[in-house]
Design a protein around this nucleic acid. Sequence first.
DNA 1: TTTGTAATATGATGATGATCATATCAACGC
DNA 2: GCGTTGATATGATCATCATCATATTACAAA
Lengths: 197, 197
Amino acid sequence: MRYDTEHKQKTRTKVLQAAAKAIRADGPHRVAVAGVMADAGLTHGGFYAHFASKDELVAAAIEHMFDETRARAQHEMEGRGPAEGLVAYIDFYLSRKHRDARDSGCPMAALASDLPRLDEAVREQFADGASRLTATLSEKLAALGHVNVDAEARSMVAELIGALSLARIEPDSKRSDAILSASRHQLKERLGLEASA
Amino acid sequence: MRYDTEHKQKTRTKVLQAAAKAIRADGPHRVAVAGVMADAGLTHGGFYAHFASKDELVAAAIEHMFDETRARAQHEMEGRGPAEGLVAYIDFYLSRKHRDARDSGCPMAALASDLPRLDEAVREQFADGASRLTATLSEKLAALGHVNVDAEARSMVAELIGALSLARIEPDSKRSDAILSASRHQLKERLGLEASA
DNA sequence: TTTGTAATATGATGATGATCATATCAACGC
DNA sequence: GCGTTGATATGATCATCATCATATTACAAA
């Protein structure tokens, strides 16, 4: 080996990070290989030493996004009881910060409408990610003594994604805030996580 | 006038219909002007006699989608009391039929993640459409004696869009059905539209 | 039937972008 | 120091696509 053993590995990671951002920001079809490579500090030529095709890059980048956001979610809920954990997650997910960070936030919200247009393999990855998240939330609900935890968790995830998507569409920032706020409160209220309406 | 007075108008409508379908199916960036024209039974050359640019086509097509789906929503709820209307709308929105008809269904669900990447003008159109829908649902809730109708309606729209998006991502049809079903029931239950859980 | 012109078709043009072929460079072992 | 070779860079190529310039065509009116 001429270069450092990890050199190529590190480069691959840099490319993946750049791709993960660009794909969420611009959509899988608008990201250009050359652009991603430039963002990673490279030129387009080396690309095919790392990935067999752009499609493969997209798939790998999506996996990368899930790894990142799963870690963040865990971090968000870590060291808290089920109720506080759920509240923290809701507050994080429906925060202005998350809304404004499309390029580094939840891939499901960032790519909701791009996905049905992608390969089934990628969709499976996504469905898997969604299931894992639903399962985590469902456990917390069970710990709180809820009965219909599965449906409640699914419904919760749906509202989170929908509300974040809508908040990102709304150009008026006050109204966008109101969308986030409404869902934050409605969710907490109906899950018994908040005293007042 | 050489052609029929309505000829061009009719052609424009055909192009818009084709574009509205293609955009929802493939996303605004993957639809090609020539393809849309071909779908409308024409060749690409005449395009610029109807629209100044592709962007203008996209904007017009999105307006067209809203007109269509608003009419359908009205039809769905028409001649029913507020409770039955809401139930009918939920059942329609979260139906397998709607899930499988991405190219002719709700534009918000079909384009959720494409929108933040489009012009503010288009996003305003969308936010407007969402507001109108929320307002309609909110009225029905008020008629049923609900108090916090605004937040409830927003939350409902968010869950509808989120659940439909998730159902469209999930490649396994049984699991996809389960996503739709969970949200259908959760929504009706929490809005007091269904007797049993 | 002929004709003028709006509506449409045909055929460029230039830009962008995925992919590949070839050249250059970096750093490890000698 | 120097060559070897893996990692990147440079510079095509080919396809797709928006847009435009020019040619046809269809049909109302004469």
